[in-house]
Write a protein that binds this DNA or RNA. Structure first.
Lengths: 208, 208, 208, 208
DNA sequence: AATGAATGAGCTTTCATTCAT
DNA sequence: TATGAATGAAAGCTCATTCAT
């Protein structure tokens, strides 16, 4: 047989139906990921739940990983949207208020889809380019450093870079742990209070 | 549906030879786990790398999970050994010194086999009885709470339970992140210093 | 393993294609079952002989047992078809004729696929729901009891239930043994003659 | 692939201890065979239950099959002993009494170890030299033919060879079925009675 | 574009058997 | 002789991916 010549370029999902299909796949994938975990998430399950044939699935996503990557990317975008919408609103207030504002952003971000977020953090293998989620850390660190540098004279830590790194990781990790193990402390605001105390005490001293 | 996964070793090695075999299996498993991650760790790879037949592997471990479980258990025991050996040495000193001592224990624990520890924390599925690693958190939380309760009059946080929970997670997460991303700050002691500042400021105020 | 060699161009419509696959699997399974016995019948052998990948096999049958079960079911259906088509035709004739008719049905049933039938009877593990074959015994017992009860006054056995049980097992077992060891007595009709003598003598006395 | 399967014992137990070991192995094998079926009977299970190392087991038996073969052989010997002890005692009596005596032998034989017998008949693969059990059929057929030929003038069946073949299979199969499905008819003697009726009616007519 | 049948490498696990001690 | 550690072929089965229709 003569070699097949591709005359038709691959169509992008520009049409309404294609968008719907992609949407259905991602929604199904997210649900299965949350319910069954990464390993038990198979492309066939996803296709079935999405009401799409496995062939169609592979027309839009070249691999299982690419589906998860798209989900991660979407989640990351959401997070960035939240962060961008909230940061910078509290300029000029007291340091405690700025810190609290940052923390509220973090909590809001973590709440976007906590179960899915958890799967990303805990189960998705650290292979390839996947965990672009974690540049959120970077973004938050930058924001925190900005706050810190706006009042350097008042701060205790000498190494601001290390300090903000420490704070970012503290806040994200504690929020994550609380989300998973003690969600009630997220709801009643006691976590934000506690972390604010911690951060302020660390940065400027207990009396603030 | 899901058959019970055995996580207990199948039989005890009676002869010196079999002890060696078990050792070889665990060593190989640890290496592959670190190099390839949990999913790509297969029993056949382990057996091959251990220089042992797949049959021998299954004579000592009834499943892939049981091998990881043995590794986790061994790691946990090591951690407990370190903790037990170090805790309680600094009784009667200042709160700063007690906190620093605790932090040094944490760093030492995290250093035991950081790469393997990372795999346990990040990749090993949260199924069955596996992650007994995490009772280390518990143990550290107890130790911290003990320190806190020995001087309750001087402390700022009202909810000591939440406070120690926050501190434990802070310390473990930050140490972990630094270990992975900025090991130099572990070596030069700046991390311990920074975390001590953070903890003391949080607990009693900045002047201490 | 084996390089993909296409010997048959498949140009059938979708629906027919999978029917063919299922058919090929069942045919191959039956042959291997007969040739090698139940234990030596492996799913890979079946797939290979069927000219189908092991993956395809498992797309239609979830387990080795399910393949055998399908074969059993199909065989059972065939048997029932034969029985239903023949029973009741000889109503009103002499008891000897009724008995002979029944026996001819049995022989016909046993001949459907004697070798396969033998495997089912002798080798297929008595686990699960598998050997639904044996409700044929039940069905035949019912038919025989019906014949017996239509003329109870003339019969020698007092316990008709036990008598029909004895007769059914006699007829099936002897037919089976002859099929396996002395097929010539099946062909020449001497078996049916002999069993008719036996049954009639047993039921009503030798002179009939 | 499949190497020749040895079925003959490897060496003879000359010393008392060896005899005990062989005995222990056979006893264990019989129990496991009955409890778990042929497939689930593994050499390691047998060795463990016998309190013997797997190495020792293979010192006395060259293969799994040879153990089963020994068990079959032993069972066959027992059966022959019973048959030999009972046959010929009723010479000179009426045909009904002779038939009944034969049937009682059959029942006694089947009762020797019914569960084990059942495993032999139903599960043990028909490979190699194994099923020497079935020469019991032969032996019984011979005995029956002898009875028949001692009074040829009185018998209805013309083909005595086929008749005794039919009778042997009838008696063995029905007894087996009753043993498995209706043991109470074995205990109360009604089976022997019924089969005697059947055989006598078949051989000489109902009036006897 | 959509379909879904087909693929097959590769996984975990078992078990009869061998052989060094 | 006894032991039990070691062996490895082979089994059942999964699932990401391809491709003919």
């Amino acid at each position: 047989m003569a070699p097949k010549i591709r005359t038709k370029p691959r169509k992008r999902p520009l049409q309404a139906r294609s968008v719907e299909t992609v949407e259905a796949i991602l929604t199904a994938a997210a649900r299965i990921l949350v319910k069954d975990g990464y390993d038990a998430t198979t492309t066939n399950k996803i296709a079935t739940k999405a009401g799409v044939s496995i062939g169609s699935l592979y027309q839009y996503f070249p691999s299982k990983e690419s589906i998860v990557a798209a989900l991660v990317e979407r989640h990351r975008t959401e997070m960035h949207r939240v962060i961008a919408a909230r940061l910078g609103q509290h300029q000029g207030h007291s340091i405690r208020e700025n810190v609290r504002a940052l923390l509220e952003v973090v909590v809001e971000v973590k709440r976007l889809d906590p179960k899915l977020h958890r799967v990303f953090v805990e189960q998705v293998p650290r292979i390839g380019e996947l965990p672009a989620i974690f540049d959120v850390n970077q973004q938050l660190a930058v924001a925190i450093t900005a706050v810190l540098e706006s009042r350097p004279e008042k701060l205790r830590p000498k190494n601001l870079d290390l300090a903000s790194y420490v704070l970012v990781n503290t806040v994200l990790a504690v929020t994550h742990a609380v989300l998973v193990e003690r969600p009630e402390n997220l709801e009643d605001g006691s976590l934000v209070e506690e972390l604010t105390d911690l951060a302020v005490a660390y940065l400027v001293g207990a009396e603030h």
